[in-house]
Design a protein around this nucleic acid. Sequence first.
DNA 1: TCAATATATGTCATATTTGATATATTAGCA
DNA 2: TGCTAATATATCAAATATGACATATATTGA
Lengths: 105, 105
Amino acid sequence: MDEKKRQKLEDAGWRVASTADFLDLTPDESAYIELKLALSKHLKQIRTQKELTQEAVAERIKSSQSRVAKMEAGDPSVSIDLLVKTLLSIGATRSDLAEVIATAK
Amino acid sequence: MDEKKRQKLEDAGWRVASTADFLDLTPDESAYIELKLALSKHLKQIRTQKELTQEAVAERIKSSQSRVAKMEAGDPSVSIDLLVKTLLSIGATRSDLAEVIATAK
DNA sequence: TCAATATATGTCATATTTGATATATTAGCA
DNA sequence: TGCTAATATATCAAATATGACATATATTGA
């Protein structure tokens, strides 16, 4: 069993209900989660690079600071849609997103 | 006003409530919609290329034929999450997704 | 033409995601 | 240390996405 991988998920806020559940992750599911985490990390990276607060980002997308925090934390309750919308709103281009997705760890 | 662009959206199932609403589309919003449409098209392309029926795809992701049809139609009720999950489930790689997103018309 | 199969469209109860709010925790600085 | 701004976390009602279903419309092959 891949403890390192499990730890990586948990670090990112993906609490797994049980080891059995974790083992049920198919390659697709892993790819999906990794993709989301990659977008999360990139959001934080761009935001801090631009010296924007979470509150400032929240205003742009008419959301709230707490939701931006959840986005950056890779919270499972956050959709890719919201991540993409947010990234685009703070200046990321489609090319940027493509690169993030392609090189996602 | 960009009638050609409006037509493109409507062709893809994005009925705009009014011209005024359409004009309110910011560049981000346009990018977001184009990105979704690109994923939709790619789904149909891969599926037909692999000679899978919508029903067959639906089974893999435990969804329904009608929802797969909506995905390919670019229906606004479909999330990027679902599109991505579906694409991954029929063999698309993250690199594939990246390319689609980067080159989206 | 006529099935038979595939796809499209509309609707709806249920599930998930959402912004908002409250509040806890952290980071930086006087 | 205390103060302040920033970030994290928990909760919840409202909004949105979902699978399922019915049914309409294409598409294909005999």
